[in-house]
Amino acid sequence: MRIAYIKNKLLTIDESFVFRVKYQTNNSILSTIESEIDTVLSVEHSEVLGALRNNDLENEAIYIFREVAAQFERPVLLFSGGKDSITLVRLAQKAFFPAKIPFPLLHIDTGHNFPETIAFRDKLVKELGVELIVRNVQDSIDQGKVVEESGKYASRNTLQTTTLLDAIEEFKFDACIGGARRDEEKARAKERVFSVRDDFGQWDEKNQRPEVFDMLNGQIELGQNVRVFPISNWTELDVWSYIQKENIEIPSIYFAHKRKIFLRDGFIWSAEDDVVFRAEDEVVEERMVRFRTVGDMSCTAAVLSEADTIEKVVGEIRESKISERGARIDDKRSEAAMEKRKQQGYF
């Protein structure tokens, strides 16, 4: 009786209403109720649920994944171990269920990863049963293709590009799927969903293909490749809310933890990892911090935070007054930093 009542009520509720309620009351309580109800419903209806509740962004991403699988010979999903690429993996699972994800994952390893990220990566790949390809920036350095940066602001972030382009050539990948979002940075705001790169991996931002309606044109010449961005239209908050709603596991460094840190230029740097350059006069202290992105450790700053659960993280992002890339020192180098790196083939 009770279950049938809840079910009927639920079916009449407009999703935007749920969304409204969610934001005006305590979010964590409502999502608990939501998932409880979902569980109750799936117990009663272990077979078939009612009408599908729509999430426009999710539907769009799934559509894009399927276009990639259909239009390209050798796609690959670029996996960094960060929350955006973890979200991509879940969306890919959704796109192809009950089949496995029909392409490998590629990790361009800077050698400057948070150890938590690598452990997480290996576990996930094992669960998925997909192939993981790892290519190391260290190898590009050893082969003399790139030169390690030095000094206070040295990072391997820009060096990744060479390693990535070499991997694309080695495996003849024709589509590289990435987790970049248009809200991250203003040069990215103009990026297409299917973004063509020439055989030097270059982005010609003034000569991009128009993308109309849902139609994606993946026609390319031999040697070219397409960068694909299924979560182009998601914001940082959308990603976090999705991780919460879907109960997706993410590396522990995204949650508040005690860490030895030091301050420089108003940023908080990890003092626990050798790759982060620290001058002798920079004082180390222990604080509760978490990371909002997990890029190259040497250019990823932490934020002070007490958010040790996904509910608290989502709450914090909603209130946050600093953008995510605000903690990425590589973008601060110049106003056009990202655009320049993209033209050279950076993701």
Partner: peptide, 19 residues
């Protein structure tokens, strides 16, 4: 059947990506 990920549904609404 109408699948959305690992669950089956009675109805696929407009603009949903289903199997």
């Amino acid at each position: 059947e109408i699948y959305f990920y690992d669950k089956k549904y009675q109805t696929a609404t407009r603009r949903s990506s289903v199997t």
